[in-house]
Every structure is written in C-alpha cells, then in structure tokens.
Nucleic acid binder design. Structure first.
Lengths: 137, 137
DNA sequence: TATTACCCTATCGGAATAGTAGGTTAATAG
DNA sequence: CTATTAACCTACTATTCCGATAGGGTAATA
C-alpha cells in the first residue's frame, strides 16, 4: 500500500507541474485544492526540496517551484524518496536490500523468486512514467 | 510491502506442495524448517484452511494438506486472502475498492492513473504464476 | 486413556502512520 | 523600518497495525 505521504507528495508535484506560470505555489493553496492537511503537506514538501526536486521561496509571494524538468523525473525516483523501497520484500530491493533473517537460501525461496518478477514489472511501469507523463493525464 | 503473514503463508504452502507424499504436514515441522513462529504460523494456516486451500487432520499423524491442485491456484488468490488488496491504492483495487476521501475526480488524478498501470502489471505477473510454478523454483 | 496436534480467544509491545501544535526565520510590501 | 507573509523546524501525540505470545480446548490416533 502506498502511504498517504507518497500519495500527497505526488499529487502536490503534479499540482505544481500543472501551473501555467513558473511562479511559486503556496502550500496552503495546494493543501486546500487537494484536500491535504496543511502542516502534513509542509513536511512532505520540505523533504522533496531537500531531495532536490523543488525550490522554495520565503515571504510574500513565496512558495514552491519545480527545479528539474518534469520529463526528466521518473516516478521511480520520487517514490523511492517518499516511500522507500519499491520492492514488496526487502530481499529483492535494489536500493534498500536487506537479507531475510528467516530465509536460508534466496535462490530456492519461492517468495523471493516471485517477488523479483513483481519488482521488475513494477519498475518497468514506474520507470517509463515521468512526472510530465502523469501530469498530462 | 508484503506482510510477514503473507510471506509465511506462501512459504508454508510451498513447503506443503513440495512434499513427496500426500500425508499431512505438521505446523511444528513447517515452523522449524522455515524459521517461523509456531503459534503465528498456526493462525495463518487456519486462515488458509478456512479459505479452502488446505485441509486439516487432527491428532497424531495429523497436520495440513493441500486440497486443490497447485497448478490451479494462481498467486493472486492466495495473496488476496492473506494480504488483502493487491493494488497500491484502494481506489484502483478491483476486489477491495474504496473511494479516496480527498480525491475529487479519479479520472484527472495522476496517482490514480499511474497506479492502475502498476496494478495491471502486477496482476499479470501474479496471475500467470500458480502455486505449482513457484514450487518448482 | 494418554498423547498428539489442530483450534480458539485474548492479549500485548513496538513500530509506523498521519497528523497537530507552536514557534522561528527569511523575504516582500508598504 | 515595520508588518505581513509563508516557508522552516522541533517536538509531541493519537491511532492503528503488525507480529507475536499465552493458555487452554477439542478431536483424532495409538
């Protein structure tokens, strides 16, 4: 399951990317439009700024704006920042690998082999979709 | 992320399916072999029995045995029983649909459209793999 | 009749999620 | 220069869920 944090983060990025002008967008505006708790959204956008997706401007007329070209941001990178691993089991995660403490042998583990397939198909979808792609929809 | 419950359940089913004879397998044996908490595993197997995957025999020489042909059990059905929805967001779940309370319109929601693609690719993988398939590996 | 092994209910600690609260800092407008 | 604006930061909290544990009850076998 996708956490609300990730969901809200993607929706916020989409909202910003859909702006006709490049002027900063206020968190309050996004929060109201997307029905997200204002304070919760703030913490998410701070994280996205620190990750290099967004720039921020303080004071009146301030807000958040995109730094990178939406067409250059695959959804995998956004989700990895907000959600963490994309794989359904740590032992098949490419970026957050962790060995199962119960598993003797990954090669003969039925779950492991199956989840590799799921991971690959998911990565394919999320890798082929950029922020620009999902903004169009 | 896959819960340990689902992971253990799949491993247990695989363990039973890999038995050379059709004699019942004890929970204690599975728990020890797969490094699963015995009591926790019991509760999982009860659920799989109630769902119609397993039969149980009490008393000495008792245990659990497969009722259906492993080749006739797609992984989707097992995961849906143990984990619940396969989709990453309730609003794109086929079997456990729930409307988002924050979303105005699913059609224009970027997350919604993206997660439909993820769901479909995941369903394809899990639907094409049966218990027999992952047992072979 | 004793043993075995599934079955049932209840409980529980810990971690994570989804916020909430309250103040601080920096930029802009007047 | 000052007031306002809006991002920024820290800390706290309520709730939920997960994974597991405890302790016995029930049915089948030897």
């Amino acid at each position: 399951m996708l956490s609300k944090k990730t969901k809200y983060g993607i929706k916020a990025l989409t909202y910003i990317a859909r702006q006709p002008s490049k002027k900063p967008v206020q968190t309050a505006e996004i929060a109201e439009s997307e029905n997200i708790s204002h304070k919760f959204l703030e913490s998410i956008l701070v994280q996205l700024r620190k990750a290099g997706f967004l720039g921020a401007k303080k004071g009146k007329g301030g807000g958040y704006y995109l730094i990178k070209d939406p067409a250059e941001i695959p959804m995998t990178t956004i989700i990895r920042i907000l959600e963490g691993p994309i794989a359904m089991v740590p032992c098949v995660s490419l970026n957050y690998y962790e060995k199962c403490d119960d598993c003797k042998d990954e090669v003969t583990c039925s779950v492991h082999q199956l989840m590799i397939q799921v991971r690959d198909s998911t990565l394919k979808v999320l890798g082929n979709n950029t922020l620009a792609d999902i903004t169009k929809q």
